[in-house]
Write a protein that binds this DNA or RNA. Structure first.
Lengths: 142, 142
DNA sequence: GTATTATATTTGACTGGTCAATGGATAGTG
DNA sequence: CACTATCCATTGACCAGTCAAATATAATAC
């Protein structure tokens, strides 16, 4: 019992340890932070999107989103404009520049992920993804 | 191919998203941050330990360790003293206070983790842990 | 139509991580 | 013995996330 618990406890620490390692390496490898890459990558699939729905999609606090987007805007990769029909919301979209740059980033990103999962079967990746989703819902009520 | 890649890419974002969610919830639930808990929990199993070996054990940058330990010291849970035989290294240990408090923290922690993994079989936990370890070694060279 | 309530974004204060540079102590080498 | 290496801990500057408070706009209820 106590052994099983300590095993489970380790999971959490392993999780944190792993992400701590991944983030800086990802950034060094690809030239962009994982969060910004995710934002761009979300935008890549849409025309224009509410900042708030974008925020929900990437699971990061709104405050951080605001800052990331402002930075991406000043670096010329995204455009922001207010929704004329509702002046509270902001529409975000990729610029041409951003649309080109993300292709490069995507390459680097794939290289990195491929290395990280190089000995994983397709089933393992699925299982891992599934387990993470379950964890997410299991703690969502907290 | 491109589909499989995008699946793999998602893993990374899922990872980051999940830890982002876990950390604040863990802290709210248990009353202590995951990193500090891990430090205390490492110390619980030893008498006295080098700060640097402690640091390697928890996979956090040394700078952060210094700050955590200082804070834990002023809150009376850990003691630090220099190694008399080598004045570079610092010995860290739990105080009595710390040894008592961690028992409480451990309870909260177990509740949290149990909830997070409540629908996981023992095999799944093992598999998950195993996969994370592999990811860790796969990117360790970067 | 005004008052209240709700929503979207922003800002500020705080925490926790990284890296790079520093200081002090030891080890190794000529 | 001096000189250089290295090692350990610390510090400062920076980035990314959280929460809570502020702002501005929209929607709803009398």
């Amino acid at each position: 019992m106590s052994c099983s618990f300590s095993k489970q406890e380790q999971i959490l620490q392993q999780f944190k340890g792993l992400t701590n390692q991944i983030s800086p390496k990802f950034e060094r490898c690809t030239g962009i932070s994982a969060s910004r890459y995710e934002l761009l990558s979300q935008l890549y699939n849409t025309e224009e999107i509410n900042q708030s729905t974008l925020q929900k999609a990437v699971n990061i606090d709104g405050a951080a989103i605001t800052r990331h987007l402002k930075q991406l805007e000043t670096s010329g990769m995204v455009a922001r404009r207010r929704n004329p029909n509702d002046n509270r919301v902001i529409f975000v979209s990729l610029t041409e520049e951003g649309r080109q740059r993300i292709v490069e980033y995507r390459k680097e990103n794939m290289g990195f992920v491929k290395q990280m999962l190089h000995d994983f079967t397709h089933e393992e990746v699925d299982a891992l993804s599934d387990m993470m989703e379950r964890m997410q819902t299991n703690i969502s009520e907290y």
